[in-house]
């Protein structure tokens, strides 16, 4: 499933990487510990996290993630968005909790391990 379709179905706000919404989402990963994401997430995963730190972009690039969904709304640091634009990593925002966002992704058929 393409990221753009997920964004539309879940009503996610696109904060960065609008040119990369055609990315294919192959699976899902949830978590806030960057080292665990690096170790466990797979290429093409959509990452659900509450982290807003610029480092999330670096992690996404290294792992080759399809995009990042930042949960619980709120403001994302400008430095994070800037870096995401540079690296071409889509950042989408939901006001819902991580649990809920993952639940809705699961409903769309996105699976983890």
């Amino acid at each position: 499933m393409k990221l753009i379709e997920i964004a539309q179905r879940l009503g996610l706000k696109v904060e960065a990487g609008v040119d990369h919404l055609e990315n294919e989402v192959r699976g899902g990963y949830a978590g806030d510990l960057l080292s665990c994401v690096m170790a466990r997430a797979k290429t093409g995963d959509l990452w659900v996290t509450v982290q807003r730190h610029p480092n999330i972009v670096a992690v996404a690039v290294l792992v080759g993630l399809a995009g990042i969904v930042v949960t619980e709304g709120g403001n994302i640091e400008p430095a994070t968005l800037e870096r995401a634009e540079q690296e071409g990593i889509p950042i989408l925002v939901s006001s819902a909790s991580a649990f809920r966002v993952v639940g809705e992704l699961w409903d769309l058929g996105i699976r983890g391990e």
Binding site: G27, G28, Y29, A30, G31, V48, A98, F99, R100, V102, G103, E104, L105, W106, D107, I110, R111, G112, E113
Partner: peptide, 9 residues
């Protein structure tokens, strides 16, 4: 975590 949330949701 992803799979756990999905199943419980």
């Amino acid at each position: 975590l992803f799979e756990s949330c999905g199943r419980l949701y």
